[in-house]
């Protein structure tokens, strides 16, 4: 490096040697990135994981006022058959202070944007805080201050439209994309 005769920095501007240095450096940076990306990307979902099948479910099997959990993408989904009183309460709460404001009517929309059925609330059974399964109707345990769901892990309260009302969770329970195939059969994962 201290060699004077081969030193490439001088006032005459860039030399062929500078060109070699820059080109080599650029190749190393580019090559490094090209090697790094496969090492990072291999951890993303594999092709067979991505080729996820959707599921079909007959809602007639869920009596009014109860809830079932069905497995989809390796995690459970809530299907709650709401009572008229619960729907009315959810509509009334549209005007309450909501952390993640969303009207009750929008919570039962199908994937194509058309209205679904107000009595069937379909949501991922995963608290938006840390992913625990909230406790819902028909299960042992507290349903929270708003009569919907209560997450026992860190104390998030959801109302009868699955909206976050109190506790650490940032968002409403997530509504997966679904469409009705018939009057009672729903296809989750579109």
């Amino acid at each position: 490096m201290s060699d004077t005769s081969l030193n490439s920095t001088h006032e005459d501007g860039p030399t062929r040697r500078d060109m070699i240095h820059v080109a080599t450096g650029a190749m190393m940076v580019g090559g490094g990135a090209m090697v790094a990306w496969p090492l990072v990307h291999q951890m993303n979902p594999a092709a067979d994981t991505l080729a996820m099948a959707s599921i079909e479910f007959d809602l007639a099997t869920v009596p009014e006022g109860s809830q079932v959990k069905v497995m989809w993408r390796g995690s459970p989904v809530f299907i709650r058959h709401r009572t008229a009183a619960e729907i009315e309460q959810a509509n009334k709460d549209d005007t309450a202070t909501l952390r993640d404001p969303e009207a009750n009517a929008n919570r039962t929309k199908q994937a194509d944007g058309s209205d679904g059925k107000a009595q069937y609330l379909i949501m991922e059974a995963s608290c938006t805080h840390a992913g625990c399964i909230p406790v819902g109707v028909g299960e042992n345990g507290y349903l929270g201050a708003f009569g919907g769901w209560f997450c026992p892990c860190h104390g998030s309260h959801y109302d009868t439209a699955g909206r976050i009302r109190q506790g650490p969770a940032p968002l409403n329970l997530i509504v997966p994309k679904y469409v009705y195939l018939s009057d009672t059969v729903v296809k989750i994962g579109v």
């Binding site: 990072v40 951890m43 993303n44 979902p45 594999a46 994981t49 996820m52 993408r73 390796g74 995690s75």
Partner: peptide, 13 residues
């Protein structure tokens, strides 16, 4: 999170 899981939930990957 999806990258860490290697899927859509905690599983085999």
């Amino acid at each position: 999170v999806t990258w860490l899981w290697g899927g859509f939930s905690v599983g085999q990957p």
